[in-house]
Write a protein that binds this DNA or RNA. Structure first.
Length: 463
RNA sequence: GGCGGCAUAGCCAAGCGGUAAGGCAGAGGUCUGCAAAACCUCUAUUCCCCAGUUCAAGUCUGGGUGCCGCCUCCA
């Protein structure tokens, strides 16, 4: 089952061949920590986390790195507005990131580097670029000379002269060429700065990733992922920096770009103001509902967002969870029919794996799980399923759900109390005291528990 | 202006040369003390439009139309 990945650089799907057999190095562009991330940002983080899980599921040993940009204009601006230090703000928002991410089922990366911890690596990197003739110093700034890198524009499929037309030149910029970009910015009053061979200043945006990739992962990686909007200029610039020091071997083998969340037919973005933070959505929806929703489309397709779609996702996920719950409660049942019916777990897993190996097609992988659940439900309804088969099906579903970062098991904390109330209701029903029976049922409903009277006995599920 | 993407049922969304996945919503039925769930059946002769290639096209080619994104901070 060979993995195929769409590479933005070649604009086609390619067979995945890691640099080192069996091992994958992957870097995901993380957040600028100046406030909470929104559900659109969350798509990128969730997709990155799932790719990492899928790679592991496919048998690779994965080294996963996600950075925090903790020096940046917006951080400086907001810290000033709040009257706190830049590092204080960054610290707070990094903590918020982890809190929100955990609830979305996103595991911490193997390394979460921060720009401020890698200033020396960045300075060293820039010195190498200057020594190699790729960068020049001008009035305390250092710029990357785009014309020195002949492939500049290849990643975003732009011609250099077209880029010049659209490029921004700030007043006061000391660039030699309009499309050149800053590696190091001379310090401005009341902004954080570090000493460097070019005087006090701070790193430009693009250099951080190249420098951290070099110092942590060794300068060459298999997969570099990020949001679609980072393709240009960020990744184009980063690639130029990376390739400048790469001596023939590609800086990144596979460039992966994740499409946007779309709200009212427009990109969700902080600057447009049309966003919901993950944190506020988490007040109303379980993290796994959000995660399930964010994986309901292929990562390269824009995904529509609105509250109604979240409700739909909750219903859909509920179908999966309830099947798992039914299976758990069916484990003790002896099937009425001999269990002639055996589910083809291997067949389902082949389809599931094939979907994910085809450029991480999570939408199709979920469909495989829904197909299995349908078959399970039919078997359960026919009373042809129970015992060990049910246990096996439950474990299977939980295992595959975990590959996509969603725990399909429901909480068990109240089970004992639930069982007591069900027993009371059952005896009331046996005595045809339906008033009492309904009272117990209402009591359970208050706890968020819904009863189902099935041929195999009473079953319950979460509301 | 340059570059790129998308258009599939009421909604979301797979499929990307072999005769329309899956989810949500909806309708009818079975089951039930009543429910709920589950199950069964139904809901796109058709994939924005027009040409073309092919034995065969949402799927490839050309031309339209509409929408979106990047080119400025942005996941």
């Amino acid at each position: 089952m060979d993995l195929v990945i769409y590479n933005s650089l070649t604009r086609q799907k390619e067979a995945f061949v890691p640099r080192v057999p069996g091992k994958v190095s992957m870097y995901l562009c993380g957040p600028t920590v100046y406030n909470r991330f929104h559900i659109g940002n969350a798509r990128t983080f969730v997709v990155g986390d799932s790719m990492r899980r899928i790679l592991a599921y496919l048998g690779y040993e994965v080294l996963y790195v996600q950075n925090f940009t903790d020096v940046e204009d917006k951080i400086i601006k907001r810290a000033k507005a709040l009257g706190i230090t830049e590092s204080g703000l960054a610290e707070q928002e990094i903590a918020n990131y982890f809190a929100d991410a955990r609830r979305l089922g996103i595991s911490p990366a193997d390394v979460h580097p921060r720009v401020t911890e890698h200033i020396k690596d960045i300075v060293d990197y820039i010195e190498l670029l200057i020594a190699g003739g790729y960068a020049y110093q001008a009035q305390g700034d250092v710029y990357f000379a785009v014309e020195k890198y002949e492939e500049y524009g290849k990643l975003s499929n732009q011609k250099l002269d077209e880029l010049v037309v659209g490029s921004r030149v700030e007043p006061g910029d000391a660039k030699r060429f309009a499309a050149d970009f800053a590696l190091w910015k001379a310090a401005k009053p009341s902004e954080p700065s570090w000493e460097s061979p070019w005087g006090p200043g701070r790193p430009g945006w693009h250099i951080e990733c190249s420098a951290m990739v070099r110092s942590i992962l060794g300068g060459h990686i298999d997969i570099h992922a990020g949001g679609m909007d980072l393709l240009f200029p960020h990744h184009e610039n980063e690639r130029a920096q990376g390739e400048a020091l790469c001596e023939g071997e590609p800086y990144v083998k596979y460039w992966v770009h994740i499409a946007f969340l779309v709200i009212n037919n427009a990109k969700m973005s902080k600057s447009a103001g049309n966003f919901y933070t993950a944190a506020e959505l988490l007040e109303k929806y379980d993290g796994k509902v959000l995660r399930f929703f964010l994986q309901s489309a292929h990562y390269r397709s824009p995904l529509s967002f609105d509250m109604g779609l979240l409700d739909s996702a909750a219903s859909g996920l509920g179908r999966l969870e309830n099947a798992v719950l039914a299976l758990r409660q069916a484990k003790e049942f002896i099937p009425k029919e001999q269990a002639v019916l055996t589910l083809d777990f291997a067949g389902y897993e082949d389809k599931f794996r094939a979907a994910l190996a085809d450029d991480f097609n999570t939408a199709e992988a979920w469909a495989v799980l829904f197909d299995l659940v349908k078959e399970v439900n039919i078997a359960l309804a026919r009373q042809a399923f129970g015992g060990r088969d049910a246990a096996e099906a439950e474990a299977f579903l939980l295992r595959l759900g975990h590959v996509l970062g969603v725990d399909l098991a429901s909480a068990t904390f109240l089970e004992q109390h639930i069982d007591e109330l069900i027993a009371k209701r059952q005896s009331a029903r046996a005595n045809k005291d339906y008033q009492a029976a309904d009272r117990h049922r209402a009591e359970l409903l208050n706890m968020g528990i819904i009863l189902e009277d099935t041929p195999q006995g009473v079953r319950w599920k979460k509301q």
